[in-house]
Design a protein around this nucleic acid. Structure first.
Lengths: 200, 200
DNA sequence: ACCTGAACACCGTTCAAGT
DNA sequence: ACCTGAACACCGTTCAAGT
């Protein structure tokens, strides 16, 4: 008999449950997904699941944080680039692709709804959001200093507007079940162009 | 004994239930609101409630349609105006005020999430959305024809972007629990200005 | 005709019993 | 130590019984 059980087991089980949960949530959303369904998908019993998560809400929180972290990671491509508008267009392209195929976009909407009701999750997402905002603001400031664009508006204002628009467009696409993303990317690019290079 | 019961009763009961439901949904969201709570708030029994609505989902649908209709009605103020940018700023102001005090903004998020999962609701909201889009497009076209603004971008593209941004900003505000709306309105106004008057 | 509230089926969570 | 699955409390929905 081993004195210590496999120390990697908890992490593995949590991963296994989260993967199953994410699949179910994408398919049917938070509201319509049953713990029993997650258990079936993860091939685990309810009792075992509740050994690794305190509640369905905690699973939702974990999925939400994960998805938003993924989204924020896309901002990496802004750092190196020196053609800001093109980099922003690529960011939009990547964002829409990541939250594209049906369920993923709906998952975004679910996350917003849950965050509005759960103060803990809201706090965590606000922090992520601030980080994303800071990174985009910095990228814009660098471009302004390099005279690549004209500082007609405060960098932070532009960043806030661009992020809000990205989010809003993602939701529109979810509602309309648009899978092609050319239109949205083009519109986002035009927006960035007009905000960053106002031709004054 | 009356041959016909009060013909206004069904409408009254439905209104009574919807008002109670809206209060509960604002307070706790779709997911965390109980039919029992709605019944208590409406001072009615579960059996009576199910006489007027087939399911909790149907109540949610009714509330969602109602809220979006309210939002679309705000577009009225674009029709008469001849100072488009100012009218847009006022629209944003009205929108943020309507979906301001705490629960209302969260309700918006709930509606998006539900719409992504319920094809019937999605269809209905898409129709409302198209109508809103058409109205804003028309207002922009009129301004372009009047040479008030320069037709640098297609009116419909601008309208799509502005509506997406309005939605995205409303969600950001919900997450951050911002009650003052000066910042968001100012940013939206700047956005409209840059998209509509690109100074070419 | 309209309502009540107990009853039912289902879902989130727990826990005694197994290995 | 870790798991199973029956049991429990709660929530959406129905229905027999009342007026």
């Amino acid at each position: 008999m081993p004195r210590l059980a496999d120390p990697a087991l908890p992490a593995r089980r949590r991963g296994q449950i989260l993967e199953a949960a994410r699949y179910c949530f994408r398919e049917r959303g938070f509201r319509h997904t049953t713990v029993e369904e997650i258990c079936a998908e993860a091939r685990i019993s309810p009792g075992a699941l509740y050994r690794y998560f305190d509640s369905k809400t905690e699973i939702i929180t974990a999925i939400a944080l994960d998805a938003r972290a993924e989204a924020e990671a896309l901002l990496d491509r802004l750092s190196g680039s020196d053609a800001l508008v093109e980099a922003l267009a690529e960011l939009a392209q990547a964002f829409f692709t990541a939250f594209d195929s049906d369920g993923d976009a709906a998952l975004l909407a679910d996350i917003w709804a849950e965050a509005c009701r759960d103060p803990l999750l809201a706090q965590a997402l606000r922090e992520r959001d601030q980080a994303a905002l800071a990174r985009m603001t910095q990228a814009i400031e660098r471009a302004q200093e390099a005279r690549e664009i004209y500082p007609a508006l405060a960098a932070r204002e532009i960043a806030e507007t661009l992020l809000a628009t990205l989010e809003g467009m993602a939701l529109q696409r979810a509602l309309r079940r648009e899978n092609a993303n050319g239109d949205a990317v083009r519109r986002f690019r035009a927006l960035a162009l007009h905000l960053l290079k106002p031709k004054r």
